[in-house]
């Protein structure tokens, strides 16, 4: 095990995967010469050369579209969207093309493509740099949506993403890049998709989250412990595929659940989690499932983003209300 930030884990994993498999190549804006605007690809141009670490013109759609072609040619592209907020400019290539190329070609062109995309709030970015768009992508069948919360999972899920044959949107939380640090397994440690992680055990209520919100949930659980409320935290890790059994077991164990995410309330992935619980664990529930997420408003400017994002206090309040519900 080695202590790493999430950014270090991603950089090291990209390096190791490129060394392991010479079909893997990186493409994106500023990924080569600069090493990425967050330095996620630092040192890789020097190590692997300009045919495998490629600075692309400033055009998101052509980055994704070219990755589709590269994959059809037998390569394993790892493309970077500089920010997930700009993936709208590539959405037709992602949703209408990448996600369904295997289906369209009836298996002739599987798409081993990874789209890495920093996203999420709390770092006072300019407009369009912080949006949590994950729910928009889960509606593209064929595309897997992966949301690591820890450095260890960033490595394990990225290894899986690169090694398995279907396209992946790999969302990296901006505010976790340097703040999240944990013990990362050395060598091969791929984390299978569709396996939620129990980030904390608890008996009274289950808080379900993904990506940076997992850390908000954990801090809320610490706070709840001071009130003698024992909160479990379940980190979904991947939204597609979804660990339904993991969710149902975790909720059945406590009978109460709170879902936390950074995307707006209406149509957020929290709604899907609640529906999953309703379908499969309804008779275990002791209280309605609560959602803590931003209102249905655009991602705000920096001075008011703390009002928008789920806070520890709001998660605590929701969990407390859930536990006290009759």
């Amino acid at each position: 095990m080695t202590s790493m930030t999430m950014l270090e884990a991603i950089n090291a994993t990209l390096r190791d995967e490129m060394a392991r498999d010479d079909r893997v190549l990186l493409l994106g804006q500023d990924v080569a010469q600069l090493g990425g605007v967050f330095r996620a690809t630092e040192g890789l141009l020097e190590r692997f050369g300009p045919d495998r670490v490629v600075d692309m013109p400033l055009a998101e759609a052509v980055i994704v579209g070219a990755a589709i072609g590269l994959a059809a040619a037998g390569l394993v592209p790892v493309a970077e969207m500089q920010f997930l907020g700009f993936s709208h400019q590539a959405f037709h290539q992602i949703g209408a093309q990448l996600a369904r190329m295997r289906y369209r070609s009836q298996g002739r062109f599987p798409m081993p493509v990874v789209l890495r995309a920093p996203f999420g709030g709390g770092v006072r970015t300019p407009e369009l740099h912080s949006e949590a768009l994950e729910a928009q992508f889960v509606q593209s069948p064929g595309l897997q949506v992966v949301m690591p919360a820890t450095a260890a999972d960033a490595k394990g899920l990225l290894q899986t993403a690169i090694r398995q044959p279907d396209p992946v949107l790999f969302c990296e939380p901006l505010r976790g890049y340097r703040l999240v640090r944990d013990e990362v397994p050395d060598g091969d440690a791929p984390v299978p998709f569709g396996t939620a992680r129990v980030a904390r055990e608890g008996d009274d209520v289950t808080i379900i989250a993904w990506s940076a919100a997992v850390h908000v949930a954990r801090r809320a659980a610490d706070r709840l412990a001071e009130e003698n409320i024992s909160a479990a935290v379940l980190d979904l890790r991947t939204l597609v595929p979804l660990d339904e059994a993991g969710i149902l077991d975790a909720v059945a164990a406590t009978g109460r659940a709170v879902v936390v995410h950074e995307a707006p309330f209406t149509g957020g992935f929290g709604a899907e989690v609640v529906a999953t619980i309703s379908d499969g664990a309804f008779y275990s529930l002791e209280a309605p499932v609560a959602r803590v997420c931003p209102p249905d408003t655009p991602y705000p400017a920096g001075k008011i983003e703390d009002y928008y994002l789920p806070s520890v206090e709001r998660v605590v309040a929701a969990a407390r209300a859930t536990v006290k519900a009759p």
Binding site: F265, T266, P295, D296, T297, P298, P300, A301, K303, I304, Y307, Y308
Partner: peptide, 18 residues
């Protein structure tokens, strides 16, 4: 700006849910 600024100018009228 305060928290209400999240909702200012989002649309001509807020929905009941908003």
């Amino acid at each position: 700006p305060g928290a209400p600024a999240l909702f200012d100018h989002v649309s001509a009228q807020l929905s009941d849910r908003q």
